[in-house]
Amino acid sequence: MIQMILTGLLCGALLGFVMQRGRFCLTGGFRDMYIAKDNRMFYALLIAIAVQSIGVYTLIQMDVIQFSTGAFPWVAVIIGSFVFGIGIILAGGCATGTWYRAGEGLLGSWMALAGYMLMSTIMKSGPLTPVNESISSVVLPKNSIADTTGISVWVFIAIFTAIVVWIISRELRKPKIVIPSMKPKRTGIAHLLFEKRWHPFFTAMLVGLIAILAWPLSEATGRMSGLGITTPSANILQYLVTGDVSIINWGVFLVLGIFLGSFIAAKGSREFRFRMPDAKTGITSFIGGILMGFGASLAGGCSIGNGLVMTAMMTWQGWVSLVFMILGTWTASYFVFIRPNVKRKTAAAQSAVTTA
């Protein structure tokens, strides 16, 4: 138990610290791909996937860890991932982003987190469990892309990594926009950790390395998996209600560690402060959290569990989930950001014509 607590909190704290300092937000990244035509955060995700994929499959080949892809619940993954994508736009952050932003003192994220944990628990061990299990029962027998095609997984990893290296090298060659910065108030390690702006690609490499570390640390406690947010979040609420200690595992301390690590990073960088949203934003965040919990539970993973981990394991579940997650964020972004803006411009134009 002590090992579980210490390693789970440590891994989670590292992840929370890195994501907070690097502003590693997949919700903003997916949204910016559509609205601002800015792909940098998506490219950062690809880096983290490539790093983790190489590291984890090396550990598997060395018999350090074990992994089974299982079957592919394709209907649940498609529906759940799309709903999850809508939810993270309304919530203002994905599952991990909500945890680390809650650690910054953003009370809207606390509301989103409450909805996320509540619906995840309802889906996994509450009245919607039969619905979850029924939709998830529609499966294809093979989830591994390598098993389906009969081609070694290392071929897919090599091709994917080569594509990522090409994309990143091209991106780094683009002219840089120099933004004037204030004179550093700190020096040395303090400046690097808490003041200097972290590059998203550097942050992604660290996230990928932490994702690799999560596998042996988790499996050492009997949990045969890597990073995961949804089930541990549901387990926390279920434990608080039932007191069932058996559901407390390494993943629970991982997500608690994310909150702790983000809090340390936010305090160190002087970014921590309690911020109360207005009523409309608070309600929207809670509804977004509800959709996140429903979607992630149905899809078998969130933007981390599916979008980072299962993609790195070269599974159909991971890559199909990532595609529909992005489509969900784009759909919500249109109705939340694009359409209202178009309506305002149209109304302003009509008003100008009428006045003239």
Rank of each mutant, 00 (worst) to 15 (best):
F272E: 04
S297L: 00
A91R: 01
W198P: 00
L113F: 10
I338G: 11
L59F: 02
I304V: 10
S109H: 14
R23Q: 13
Q52E: 14
G289N: 06
A220D: 09
A44K: 01
S137Q: 06
V75I: 12
T284A: 13
S262H: 08
G150S: 08
S81T: 05
L15G: 00
L90Y: 03
M1C: 10
A44Q: 02
L322P: 05
M111P: 08
Q52N: 14
M62S: 13
P141G: 11
I122M: 08
R21A: 00
A91H: 01
F259L: 14
V164M: 07
L322A: 11
M1D: 11
S134P: 12
V342P: 10
L327R: 01
A347D: 11
I145H: 01
G251F: 03
A234I: 04
T230A: 03
M123I: 05
L113E: 06
I179K: 06
N249V: 14
W110H: 12
I60C: 10
I47L: 04
C11G: 09
W330I: 10
T230E: 01
E104K: 13
S218F: 01
V155E: 09
I189L: 15
T187H: 14
V155D: 09
T98C: 05
L260G: 06
E104Q: 15
I212T: 05
G288K: 00
G289C: 06
F324V: 02
S136Y: 09
G85Q: 01
